[in-house]
Amino acid sequence: MDLSSINPLVLIAALMVASTPILLAAIGELVVEKSGVLNLGVEGMMITGAICGFAVAVESGSPALGFLGAALGGAVLSLLFGVLTQYLLSNQVATGLALTLFGLGLSALMGQGYIGIKPPATGDVNFGPLADLPVLGIVLFSHDLMVYVSLALVAAVWAFLKYSRAGLILRAVGESHEAAHALGYKVVRVRLAAIAFGGACAGLGGAYLSLIRVPQWTEGMTAGAGWIALAIVVFASWKPWRVLLGAYLFGGVTVLQLNLQAAGLAVPVEYLSMSPYIITILVLVIMSSNRGRAALTAPAALGRSFHASS
């Protein structure tokens, strides 16, 4: 085994890229759950975003338009969930699961003509001399734009929830929809907006996979990333910075175990492959193990249907 082939700086840079799809999907789902809606369709919205983004980018030749298309595709699919659960009061868990299955099928259909094509390349952001800095240069200043967008999004969501009035209303709706309704807030509208935002974020995450990380289109390419995003939101106790931590931890262990496999570590590959899931969940479970506090942070109206009575 040759551990010296693993360069820690390259590893850190690679983990940021590996984590970005999950981070994008998870931060969107965090907003959705903060508004009191449990959308289990993250996986379906991600893969739909992946193919929408891929198709738009290939047809237009512009990765930026591709990401826009992905966000739109994810949002449209999520609004299907929104209409079903918010207006027709269908069960959120069942509808979310159906959305995942639907998204997987829809993306496979849409992707028929795109298998084996290379998308237009997304360039890294040019920071000029900053990129040549030792250590920091490779870790911080050598990425594509979406990595920075995802980090900015975490900060924006955190500030929105903590400091803005709209964020306060969103949390209030997720805490007690009856009370919010009694005070005259539009529960359904707030939730639909949150669901669409979550869909757009999941779509971006999917497009990041198909346009940058892989980059090509294959059926079912999200391979459970949406489920990990869901788990990270819960174990991160619905806190944006912890979502970042969870996503990077998962990405980091994924990259590390791939490197270890390449270096020929004498552990069966299966154990290495499962390690990111186990370690991420273990760490987040320990962090949220204080039962009383954990119960406090879950939005109290999470997953409950709202119907304005009289």
Partner: peptide
């Protein structure tokens, strides 16, 4: 009222 929010936030709402 919203149990997980503080007094000032509840008043603001």
């Amino acid at each position: 009222l919203f149990e997980a929010l503080n007094v000032a936030e509840n008043v603001a709402l």
